[in-house]
C-alpha cells in the first residue's frame, strides 16, 4: 500500500531558500541545491520548490536553480511560482519538474488546469490553494496570500478537481508558520469535498502534529518548511515516530 508522504517545501527567493511567518517576515535559510540534497538523503518523499515572489513580481521562475536541483535529486519534484501558461508548464517540466503547482495562474484562468491536464496528464497538475477564514468562510487568496479573491475554497477545490487537477495542496494562511498544528477543520472541509490526493500545508510545529494529521485518512501527505529547515524536526525521527504509531511511511 502506498505510504503517507512527508514533503519539505523550499520557498525560494532570489536563488535562496527562505522562510516567512504568515507569508511575511522573510528570512534567508540556505542554498536550494544543498538543502534539496540534504532532504533527499534525510528521507523526504518528495520536494516542493516554490519561487515565492515570481507571481508577485510578474516574472518567470528561475529555471537554472531548478535544473541544478533536479539533476541531483531523484525523488519527485513539484515546482510552482509564476506558472501562468502552458509554456510555463513546458519550461519547468523540461527543467526537471515532475509536477507543476498552479495557484494564482489558475485563479486568473481556470482553463489552464484543464489544458495542462489534457497535455501533461492530471498527475502532473497540482492545484495549490492559499486559504484563510473570512467571516467564518474559507476563502481563496492569490499572489502569495496577498490578495483576497472572495472565491469560496470548497467550490474552488471541487472545480479544480473537475477541471483535471491531480492533487490539491491546501495551505492554511491562518496556521502558516505559527507551528500550532495543521488546520484540521479546514483540511476536513476540503477533504470531504474532493476525492483527489490532498496535501496538508501550514502549521506543523512538532512530530505529534503529523500524527494528528494522518489520523484523518483523507490526507495523503504533510508539507512543511520551517520545522525541517531549522532541524527542529528530523524527517527520519518523524518517520520512525509515525511508524511506531502505526502510520505507513517510507523508511
Amino acid at each position: 500500500m502506498i505510504s503517507k508522504r512527508i514533503i519539505p517545501c523550499l520557498d525560494v527567493m532570489n536563488g535562496r531558500v527562505v522562510k516567512g511567518v504568515n507569508f511575511k517576515e522573510i528570512k534567508d535559510m540556505a542554498d536550494p541545491v544543498e538543502m534539496a540534497r540534504w532532504y533527499s538523503e534525510a528521507g523526504a518523499d518528495e520536494l516542493v520548490f516554490y519561487d515565492i515572489t515570481a507571481s508577485y513580481e510578474g516574472r518567470k521562475l528561475f529555471t537554472d536553480v531548478l535544473r541544478a536541483v533536479a539533476s541531483q535529486i531523484f525523488i519527485p519534484l513539484t515546482v510552482g511560482g509564476g506558472i501562468n501558461s502552458l509554456d510555463d508548464f513546458d519550461t519547468v517540466l523540461k527543467s526537471g519538474a515532475d509536477k507543476v503547482s498552479i495557484n494564482s495562474g489558475a485563479i486568473k484562468d481556470p482553463s489552464l488546469i484543464s489544458a495542462a491536464a489534457k497535455r501533461y496528464g492530471s498527475q502532473c497538475v497540482v492545484l495549490s490553494m492559499d486559504v484563510k477564514r473570512v467571516g467564518g468562510k474559507f476563502r481563496v487568496f492569490a499572489n502569495g496570500g496577498r490578495i483576497g479573491t472572495g472565491i469560496d475554497a470548497l467550490e474552488w477545490a471541487k472545480r479544480g478537481e473537475y477541471l483535471g487537477a491531480g492533487e490539491i495542496v491546501l495551505n492554511s494562511i491562518d496556521t502558516d508558520g505559527v507551528r500550532g498544528g495543521f488546520d484540521i477543520p479546514m483540511l476536513r472541509a476540503i477533504g470531504e469535498t474532493v476525492s483527489i490526493p490532498l496535501i496538508a500545508s501550514g502549521g506543523a510545529g512538532k512530530k505529534e502534529d503529523f500524527l494528528e494529521l494522518f489520523r484523518y485518512d483523507r490526507i495523503d501527505a504533510g508539507l512543511a518548511a520551517g520545522i525541517f529547515h531549522t532541524k527542529k524536526v528530523d524527517i527520519r525521527d518523524l518517520k520512525d515516530y509515525l511508524r511506531g504509531c502505526g502510520v505507513n511511511v517510507r523508511l
Binding site: 502506498i2 518523499d45 498527475q123 492533487e167 483527489i196 490526493p197 495523503d220
Partner: peptide, 9 residues
C-alpha cells in the same frame, strides 16, 4: 482507493 496509484509503494 484513489486512481492513479500515485506514491511510494
Amino acid at each position: 482507493l484513489k486512481v492513479p496509484h500515485m506514491g511510494w509503494n
